[in-house]
């Protein structure tokens, strides 16, 4: 049996009380929402919070508001979003990303907040304690060396969230609340460069709201690569958002994920595409440029060389779908 370690369990009633408890308990406390990422991590002894602060009774962080913008409470389940017909019509790329996460049963449990704050993943990390001891622990947890890149001073564990690249491409903002106050950041600002320090969110901050601005005439698409049609995390992912002016690109956001610790905003590709017609030649060139930003290492399913190649194929398909 892979049992959970022991912990103190608290279940506050709202976001403010959650923040207060996090401050009181200090850095050994962690939020648990659906538990679908945290509990496996606790069983494998990656993350060992002394106190679990559960959001199960925190109803002020559930629900979706749709005005011009779409505001999603962090504690909304993935299934709740999947069943939201208006969300499916208004933000089909986000809906596709949500619907591609794991399995229907898991989506009954997992939340979008947990998906945004998902721990980074690596073949040498997502293993039980005995396995990790067997080859000696790695830098991300309990050890000193990176088994993927032994000379590296940073960890290359992969941001494997499906919703994150779409949220970044759509220009979403995250609201973070602590006893020190509230702040709102651009989605991309949430993520750190290193697989160990993968979030810029402070430990006492609660992610409360995800706000996606009015998308106007822009259209978006999400493409996920994985071995099986269910269960699997992405091994490469592309989110693209394009706003056209006639047949020319007025504005474009292109984001890669699951190819490194931080989602990659393809800035030079975006610049290249602006003002151009999405001809097959332009799309081909953009795909080549974008793939340069992807530096996958061999720490997920599939070979890293193949993942790099497939990034450019998927960028082509994504832009092709938006043409």
């Amino acid at each position: 049996m892979m049992r959970l370690p022991s912990f103190r369990y608290l279940a506050p009633k709202d976001a403010a009380e959650t923040a207060k408890i996090l401050t009181g308990e200090g850095p050994d406390a962690m939020i648990v929402a659906g538990g679908t990422d945290l509990y496996p991590n606790m069983k494998r002894r990656h993350q060992m919070p002394k106190t679990l602060v559960s959001l199960r009774n925190v109803n002020d962080l559930r629900g979706v508001e749709m005005n011009g913008a779409v505001t999603i409470g962090s504690n909304e389940t993935l299934r709740g979003l999947e069943r939201n017909a208006e969300l499916k019509t208004r933000l089909p790329a986000l809906w596709t990303a949500v619907q591609s996460i794991s399995t229907p049963i898991l989506r009954n449990m997992g939340t979008i907040g947990g998906n945004v704050c998902l721990d980074t993943r690596c073949n040498y990390y997502n293993q039980n304690w005995e396995w990790r001891r067997g080859i000696d622990f790695c830098m991300k947890c309990d050890g000193t060396v990176c088994w993927v890149a032994p000379s590296s001073s940073v960890c290359w564990a992969v941001n494997s969230s499906d919703t994150v690249p779409v949220l970044i491409a759509m220009g979403a903002k995250f609201t973070l609340v602590s006893t020190r106050g509230e702040r709102t950041i651009e989605a991309i600002e949430m993520f750190g460069e290193d697989g160990i320090d993968y979030l810029t969110k402070q430990k006492d901050e609660v992610l409360t709201r995800i706000e996606i601005p009015d998308q106007g005439n822009a259209t978006s698409v999400y493409r996920k690569v994985r071995r099986r049609g269910a269960f699997d995390f992405p091994v490469a992912a592309v989110a693209a958002r394009v706003e056209m002016d006639g047949d020319e690109v007025k504005d474009v956001n292109l984001v890669l994920n699951a190819v490194g610790p931080k989602p990659v905003v393809c800035e030079s590709t975006q610049e290249f595409l602006k003002g151009k017609k999405l001809t097959p030649e332009v799309v081909e060139e953009a795909a080549k440029l974008a793939a340069r930003g992807a530096k996958p290492l061999d720490n997920t399913d599939h070979l890293s060389m193949w993942r790099k190649k497939v990034v450019s194929v998927e960028v082509k398909r994504a832009l092709g779908a938006l043409r």
Binding site: P27, R45, H46, Q47, M48, D119, W129, D142
Partner: peptide, 8 residues
Amino acid sequence: MNPTTEAG
């Protein structure tokens, strides 16, 4: 995140 087990 932060390792809390002692290596070994």
